[in-house]
């Protein structure tokens, strides 16, 4: 019995030592400039996810001791997480609400993006949708493709959950412009990736996603809206209907020499903005 107790005591002491050591490491590294270490949790928008993931990958190559994770529950969760301290950097695909700015959220615009309207490729023949028809579908006024000159089939409307920044941008640019609200009879999906794959696999479906997700599912096609194709050029010249800025968020100002500062600077750098373009989003300064 005594032996067991001794062993336990030794283990306890050893573990205390290990933990204390770990803490010292973390404290030591943040004081040394340009060498970061430790685990960092980022999270938020599913639209911004490809940018942050790709940027984090090259960032981790520069600082091999850094591990960055990205969790994608939606823009509102990104802002909430950044404010609560769960995420050291949050990401959102919509602008901040005044209540969020009051709570101390600071946005850094890192890219521009549009929201594309996507249809099920195999069953819906349209290649163009008038914005007013998109609004009528999402307000629940048109429920059959026949009304738009398509096949006689009920329209399967996919919408995003309320955490989504893409949803809030799409709402502002569509139903809200006519003081209408979204139809209740829409199936809710919780990410851009989920959206394109569900629209691709459900006959007669309509949905919407960030430009970065166009073409990610073979069964989904993006259509022109009011004959304007969803391309970066059309977002930049403001002819495309649904556009927005993608932001990263921290709580309070960036601390000089912090990893958060280095990461945001990296995304804003030429190399970072190349990643933005590679992921099919629009560099912020173009």
């Amino acid at each position: 019995m005594k032996k067991i107790i001794t062993v336990l005591m030794v283990l306890l002491a050893a573990s205390a030592f290990v933990f204390a050591n770990g803490q010292q490491d973390a404290a030591g590294s943040s004081s040394v400039e340009l060498s970061f270490a430790g685990n960092y949790a980022f999270g938020g928008s599913t639209t911004v996810e490809p940018i942050v993931r790709a940027a984090a990958e090259s960032f981790q190559e520069m600082y091999p001791l850094v591990k960055i994770s990205y969790d994608a529950p939606g823009s509102s969760a990104g802002v909430k997480g950044a404010l609560a301290g769960t995420y050291s950097i949050g990401a959102a695909s919509r602008s901040l609400k005044s209540s969020e700015i009051e709570a101390g959220a600071i946005p850094y615009a890192v890219a521009k993006d549009g929201v594309a309207v996507v249809l099920n490729k195999g069953t819906v023949p349209m290649d163009n949708m008038a914005l007013k028809d998109v609004i009528a579908i999402y307000a629940g006024e048109i429920t059959n493709w026949k009304a738009l000159g398509g096949p006689d089939a009920e329209i399967v409307v996919y919408n995003r959950d309320e955490a989504s920044g893409t949803r809030s941008c799409f709402k502002d640019a569509t139903v809200k412009t006519q003081k209408k609200s979204f139809t209740e009879n829409a199936a809710i999906v919780t990410s851009n990736g989920d959206m394109v794959s569900k629209v691709g696999s459900t006959p007669y479906a309509i949905g919407y996603c960030g430009f970065g997700y166009i073409g990610k599912d073979a069964g989904t096609k993006a259509v022109t809206v009011n004959k304007i194709p969803p391309t970066p050029a059309n977002v930049l010249n403001a002819s495309y209907a649904v556009a927005r800025e993608l932001i990263l968020i921290t709580k309070g100002d960036l601390v000089a020499g912090s990893l958060e500062e280095a990461f945001i600077n990296y995304i804003m750098s030429e190399e970072g903005q190349e990643i933005v373009a590679e992921e099919k989003f629009i560099p912020i300064n173009s």
């Binding site: 939606g74 509102s76 309320e162 955490a163 009879n185 829409a186 809710i188």
Partner: peptide, 26 residues
Amino acid sequence: NAVTMPKGPLSLTRTLTMNIATDMKY
């Protein structure tokens, strides 16, 4: 997961558990 009163067996729906799971994160 649609926020709507179920009207029949083919209606979309959201249950109590789904509501907690969907909204909790934000």
